[in-house]
Amino acid sequence: MSVIKSDAEGYSHRVGNEGEVDTDSSIEFSVENLSFGYDSSLVLKNINLKIARGEFIAVLGPSGCGKTSLLRLLAGLETPVGGKILHRGDVVTGPNITRGVVFQDYSLFPWLNLRDNLVIAINKARKGLSKAERDQIAEEYLDLVGLPGVGFKHPYEISGGMRQRCAIARSLALGSPVLLMDEPFGALDPVNRLRLQDLLLLLSRNNSNRRTIVFVTHDVEEALYLGDRVIVLGSNPGRIIAEIKVPFEGKHFRHDLFQSKEFRELSQQIAALYHEDIERQLEIGSVVGEGEMI
C-alpha cells in the first residue's frame, strides 16, 4: 500500500507515477515552501506539492486544517506569506480564467438566471459570438450537467444540487484547464452528493484532454472515490501529513469499489491518520485547559 508519511517538516515530494511527471511541461502546479496565515498564527506551514496535468487531487483534512486556504491560494484569491505557487511555470499572483473555481454554495450571481450566469463565462472564453450563439452554448452546457431547459430560472428558484450542477457547468464553459473545487458537494443531501460525484467523474475522465482537478473535502470515501491521489492535511499549523496514490485506476463502479477489501482498508488507514491528528489537537487543547485552571 502506497501510504507515504512525510517527515516532520511536512515535506513530501512524491508525485503519482514517479519519474513520468517530473518534466516541466507535465506539471500543472508546483507549490514551494508555501506558508499562509494572519500575523503570528500560521494556517499553512511549509507546504510542498507538485500536481501533474490532468491529475485529480483530493485534499482531505479536518475542518480548520487550512484546506480551503490552500485552494484559495492555488486560485490566486489569497496571497501567501511565504513560499510561492507556480502554475505552469508562472507565479500565481491573482485569480484568472485559467483556474476555474466551484465554491460550496455561492458560485452563481443571484441576479442572473442560469443561462446568463453561463453566458458571462462563455463571453470570457470565446470572443465575437452572437447572442443567439452564446445562449445556445449555455443551453448545451446546462444539458451536459443534467439541467436541460431550465436556463431561464434563477439560482434562488432551484435546489442546492442544481446550483452546484450549474456552477460546474460555468467552470466548464469558462474553458479553464484547471478546476478547483472547495467542498462543492458538502451542503448537499446524500443522494445528490453521489449523483454529482458520478457526474464529476464522468466529465473529468471521459475526455481526451483531461482537466486538472483539485477537490477539497473532509469525507474520506469521497476523496478515495474521486481522487487519483489524496493529500491528507493535518492541522495547527496546516501541513501535509500523508500523500496516497489511489490504486483503483479504472475501477470506478461505486458499489464494487466500496465493497472491496482494498478500498475499506485504505479508507480505514486514512481515517486512522485523521484521528491521530484530531486526538493530538484535543491533547493540546486539554493541556492548555489545565494550564488555565492552575
Partner: peptide
Amino acid sequence: LRYRDNAGILG
C-alpha cells in the same frame, strides 16, 4: 467576498 471571488475567477 463571494461576489468578489467570483468576479476574480471570471477575470
